[in-house]
Write a protein that binds this DNA or RNA. Structure first.
Length: 544
RNA sequence: GGUCCCAUCGUCUAGCCAGGUCUAGGACAUCGGGUUUUCAACCCGGUAACAGGGGUUCGAAUCCCCUUGGGACUACCA
């Protein structure tokens, strides 16, 4: 049976690159009827935050994954947090030490830094010089007493070429002379990534490791450890990296960078207000703007929002908040470095599972194209079952705290219907929002007002439309349509001449659902009030 | 710098492994036109690629080599 896993380090929100890695592992397991498990790689105590792991799981669930074993649901190989598996690693570590396949080291960070610098200036490979005689337990005691750090290094066997049989890349050969004796236990007693991953994959029965290309050069280390410990070697598949369409690698740092650039491009900024919005000190803000430091994500988000700046989406939650559907996201991610080979692009989760095959993963890097994602999203909104879409829309509205969130399902269904062709849920929200805010909360878009109301006879037309609407016996989308079309014909003008002023009067801009629905949804009373307000507000502006 | 990986339209890619049917197909973006009460959506059409150079072969996008370009790694991070 095929067993795959996703093993994130809990450093924050799950970003799209990680999501893609998880997806390929999940697809393979689901396709073959195997198992998919989630393991938290939290051996770096400094970088862990307690909420981060929970957030990653939440993000995975949002995308539509389920897992057979994991930190939240347990399983036969529990625990699934590496920080709780120290005794297990210690046991295997002792085995290597006993067999003289690993040895203690007492170097300080500074000493290692000096060695690294030397190697760099002499332009040679920085490899740790293995001692002739391995330190003894007595030496360890002594080091402890002297307060020196104690680490354990793996004595890399130098006798044969390492061959990686990669499912994506084919055979990759690496000479062991390239690999220095690497640390497998840190001075805090925890194993390094290399050691923990090898032990856990073996114990958890992982058969296929699908991960990013950045791990390809780690694989020799893992295979060497597996051999030394008498473990099985899983099948490896290293997939290409996803790069950003704003240039460079798709990384978490993109959002702060984009924010900094946007702030610098602004003519004047209120630093105090900005720091307050981000809940950081003025010094922290200065340091951020100078490029010396980066505030945490909530601070970045808050500052961007206060300035009305759109940051590029990187984390899964960013896409959620921008109104993307998880189904579209999954579909798009799957096609980044993979394709079914028959030309299909828009696919459901089930279709993806059925079509998935390791052999069709491509080797070259791919660029994350938001345009294409947007097109996928449009398509998925269109084909999604209404009830499911209502559910997605509701959770989106709640997430962004939209005034529309208070609408009931029937209303949401109506909103969806009249927004056919929308690219994102956000677009639906923005177009429909006007009907859920108080009349005096509505703001006018300057350009729309100028073009539709102030130029030409928009205001006169609006007045006529208002009077006609007031006289309407029954308000339905149909009756409104009859009325407006009749009016247009009577005045010998296109429907646009009649509809646009009305649209601006009730929505504040020229973007809205179809006008008949818009009026009907807002209701006659509010419509008339907004027309009145518009008339009185811009009559004078026009005269002036 | 060293090691490794990669290379088809602007982008994602099909084709490559088993060379001819490839005047290189699709999708997104873009451009032009249509539809239209706004924004979208929708319909029709167009522009657009085998990185360069050597081989092998009757024949190369497909196989080999070199060059160039891009990427990853080079931590007591994962």
């Amino acid at each position: 049976m095929i067993v795959t896993r996703f093993a994130p380090s809990p450093t924050g929100y799950l970003h799209v690159g990680g999501a893609r890695t998880a997806l390929f592992n999940w697809l393979l397991a689901r396709k073959t009827g195997g198992k998919f498990l989630v393991r938290i790689e939290d051996t770096d105590l400094k970088r862990n935050t307690p909420t981060a792991a929970a957030q990653v799981l939440k993000d995975l669930k949002w995308l539509g994954f389920d897992w057979d074993e994991g930190p939240d649901i347990g399983g036969p190989n529990a625990p699934y947090n590496q920080s709780e598996r120290k005794d297990i690693y210690d046991k295997y570590l002792q085995q290597l030490l006993d067999e003289k396949k690993a040895y203690y080291c007492f170097d300080t960070t500074e000493e290692l830094g000096v060695l690294r610098d030397e190697a760099e200036t002499e332009k040679r490979h920085n490899q740790y010089r293995r001692p002739e005689k391995f330190p003894t337990e007595a030496d360890v005691e002594k080091a402890h007493a002297e307060g020196r750090p104690v680490t354990v290094r793996f004595a890399v066997p130098r006798d044969e070429t390492i061959v990686i049989e990669d499912e994506v890349r084919g055979q990759v050969r690496i000479e062991p002379s390239e690999i220095g004796d690497f640390i497998i236990q840190k001075s805090d007693g925890f194993p390094t990534y290399h050691f923990a991953v090898v032990v856990d994959d073996e114990l958890m029965g992982v058969t296929h490791v699908i991960r990013g290309q950045e791990h390809l050069m780690n694989t020799p280390n893992h295979q060497l450890l597996q051999k030394a410990l008498g473990f099985r070697i899983p099948k490896y598949a290293h997939m290409s990296v996803t790069v950003s369409d704003s240039g460079g690698k798709l990384s978490k740092r993109e959002r702060p960078k984009a924010l900094r650039a946007a702030i610098k491009a602004m003519e004047e900024i209120d630093r105090t207000a900005l720091a307050k919005a981000g809940n950081i000190s003025d010094d922290e803000l200065d340091s951020f703007l100078k490029g010396d430091s980066m505030p945490d994500m909530p601070a970045i988000d808050a500052m961007a929002q206060s300035l009305g700046i759109r940051l590029p989406e990187i984390n899964l939650v960013d896409f959620f908040r921008s109104g993307y559907l998880p189904e579209a996201m999954m579909n798009f991610l799957a096609l980044l470095g993979w394709n079914p080979g028959d030309g299909r692009e828009i696919m459901t989760q089930q279709e993806l599972i059925q079509a998935f095959d390791l052999s069709r993963i491509s080797k070259s890097n791919s660029l994350f194209d938001r345009n294409k994602l947007s097109a996928f999203n449009t398509e998925h909104i269109r084909m999604m079952a209404p009830a499911t879409l209502v559910r997605h829309l509701r959770s989106f509205l709640e997430e962004i705290e939209s005034p529309i969130a208070k609408a009931d399902d029937t209303m949401l269904m109506r909103i969806i219907k009249m927004n056919e062709g929308a690219r994102t849920l956000e677009q639906i929200e923005q177009k429909t929002r006007f009907a859920f805010i108080a009349n005096d909360e509505m703001t006018y878009d300057d350009k729309a007002v100028k073009k539709v109301l102030l130029k030409g006879n928009g205001l006169e037309m609006l007045k006529i439309v208002g009077e006609a609407l007031a006289a309407l016996p029954e308000l339905t989308p149909e009756s409104i349509e009859v009325l407006l079309r009749g009016l247009a014909e009577e005045k010998q003008v296109g429907l646009g001449k009649v509809a646009q002023p009305l649209r601006v009067a009730i929505c504040g801009n020229t973007i809205s659902p179809p006008i008949f629905d818009a009026v009907d949804m807002l209701g006659l009373d509010n419509t008339l009030k907004r027309i009145e307000r518009t008339l009185s507000q811009f009559q004078q502006a026009k005269e002036a």
